[in-house]
Simulated scan of single mutants.
Amino acid sequence: MDDIVRQALAKWPNVPHCTGWLLLDRRGNWRMRDEAAQAQGAPGEPIRHEALLGFIHRNYEADARGQWFFQNGPQRVYVELVYTPWIVRLAVDANGALTLTDQAGGTFTPNAAWLDDEGGILLTQAPAGEREQPRVAALHDHDLDLFSEHAEIAADGQSGAFHWRSDVTLPLQAIARADVGARFGFVASPAGQATAAQAAPAPDDHGPA
């Protein structure tokens, strides 16, 4: 978390939370949802401002209930998740090894792989602490062809294997998309469940102060 955010929290500790205004889509794009977008159930406009995107990534985390938020100064902006809290891209580096990178630009090292009932691929990363949940990410749909080049999927679409490294093969486990949030401890739509769930104005979309 940025120091400027910690200072704002200390100065204004009781600013109401904001829900509904920020969304992470299935391809890892952050979207700002105004009142019209919320009323229509639309995803909202993609955020393009590089400084704001960096600010969101540095201050993105989950609360004890598994609700993900962006700490915008003293205000906690809860995030609507189209699927998982993280979206990863699969690529091949200059040495021919596979790499996974999350929407914040961080390295993602999988320890398990999952195949959902809609054909999506999920990957988990071991938690940093004993009490934490594994970090779960959905693979960007543009990378499914590359994934298939390094995987074997059974005819029934419910099992298989992902060859992550020459010496690391991850079994593909079946999971229903509807069960993913509960299985990995996150809330896809935290609106109305925040600890201070008053309505609040939209977050400032012009970048960090």
Rank of each mutant, 00 (worst) to 15 (best):
Gln173Thr: 14
Arg31Ala: 02
Leu100Asn: 00
Ala137Cys: 01
Ala42Tyr: 07
Ala94Phe: 07
Ala42His: 11
Tyr60Leu: 07
Ala112Met: 07
Ala191Met: 10
Pro43Thr: 12
Gly66Gln: 05
Thr169Leu: 06
Trp114Asn: 03
Ala128Leu: 15
Val92Arg: 15
Arg183Lys: 14
Asp93Lys: 11
Asp145Gln: 13
Gly28Thr: 00
Met1Gln: 11
Val187Ala: 06
Phe162Met: 03
Val79Glu: 00
Ala62Thr: 09
Ala51Asp: 09
Val88Ile: 13
Thr109Glu: 15
Ile56Ser: 07
Glu152Gly: 14
Asp116Tyr: 07
Ile121Met: 10
Ile87Thr: 11
Trp86Val: 03
Thr107Gln: 12
Asn95Cys: 08
Leu172Tyr: 06
Ser159Asn: 10
Leu22Gly: 03
Val5Ala: 09
Gly119Lys: 13
Asn111Arg: 07
Ile4Pro: 00
Phe186Trp: 04
Ala176Gly: 11
Leu23Ala: 14
His206Gln: 15
Arg48Pro: 00
Gly44Asp: 12
Phe69Gln: 01
Glu80Phe: 13
Pro134Trp: 02
Met1Asp: 09
Gly44Cys: 06
Gly185Trp: 07
Val88Ala: 10
Ala39Lys: 10
Pro203Gln: 09
Val5Ser: 05
Ala94Trp: 01
Asp102Tyr: 01
Glu45Tyr: 07
Leu172Trp: 02
Ala42Val: 06
Pro85Cys: 08
Thr124Gln: 02
Thr169Ile: 09
Pro13His: 08
Asn95Tyr: 13
Arg131His: 13
Arg58Glu: 15
Leu52Phe: 09
Ala94Ser: 12
Ile121Pro: 00
Ala97Ile: 02
Ala37Met: 09
Phe186Thr: 03
Gln38Phe: 04
Glu130Gln: 13
Leu122Ile: 00
Ser166Val: 10
Val15Met: 12
Gly207Leu: 08
Gln7Met: 13
Gln67Thr: 01
Ala200Gln: 02
Pro46Gly: 08
Asn14Ile: 02
Gln75Ser: 03
Gln75Tyr: 02
Glu132Gly: 02
Arg48Lys: 13
Pro46Glu: 12
Gly185Met: 07
Asn14Cys: 04
Thr107Lys: 10
Gly105Lys: 08
Pro171Val: 05
Ala62Phe: 04
Ala209Gly: 12
Asn29Phe: 05
Ala182Ile: 07
Ile56Asp: 02
Pro85Asn: 08
Thr84Leu: 05
Arg165Lys: 15
Pro201Ala: 14
Phe162Gly: 05
Arg165His: 13
Asn72Pro: 03
Leu98Phe: 11
Asp3Trp: 13
Ala138Glu: 01
Ile121Ala: 00
Arg131Phe: 10
Gln158Ile: 01
Asn14Gln: 12
Ala128Pro: 01
Ala104Cys: 06
Gly44Asn: 08
Asp141Ile: 11
Leu90Tyr: 04
His57Thr: 06
His163Val: 10
Val15Thr: 15
